[in-house]
Amino acid sequence: MSLLGSFLVNLAVFVAVAVGGGLGTAWYMIETGSRLSTRTFGPWTTWTAAGRPDADPYTRAHVLRNALLPLSTTLEMTYHARADSRGGRLHSACEYAIVVEGFDTAWWSIAAFDGRGGVIQNPAERYAFNTDTVMREPDGRAVITLARDARPGNWLPIGGGSRITLVLTVQDAAWAAASQEGSPPKPLPEIQRIACR
């Protein structure tokens, strides 16, 4: 290979690795996060310093880029799930069951969004359940069913043929403190896929 050819090859590799690698890793760390800034519990992922003034640069960039307005994680933890407990991508063509238990005195909410964080249009105009609106079983558990068509009990409608993101919010200072130390005091709800069309 000629001297010019060798120079061009090195230049192309240099630019590709520097720009592609630099921007690509920054994008990954800001959008997806790593163990430096997030914790994952089953299908649920949380940005551990979201909303805090002492948050790391990745968390701050994540909050800004996504136009989020989180409460400090010293009070409230927000968990996002884009997959079910077996790793399958959450999709509106499928039906899921979420069993919520173990939050005791904590206030909690589960909401379904599309992939971009928009609420999902449905005739029932129901987009979330929380501590006060969910119906409980005699043993205190709450079973929430995500499905396109109506289901008995706590039905959270999903439709539109798109990917789904679930957001679980738990507001309790003791819970948040335990989560900051390592893991939540109780396991987070499983997301069980029941069927797909």
Binding site: F14, V17, A18, G21, G22, T25, I30
Partner: peptide, 17 residues
């Protein structure tokens, strides 16, 4: 390239805010 990539990574991360 790796060194410059690191610089671009840091600049991009801080540039978002």
């Amino acid at each position: 390239a790796i060194l410059l990539g690191g610089v671009i990574h840091i600049v991009a991360t801080f540039a978002v805010p």
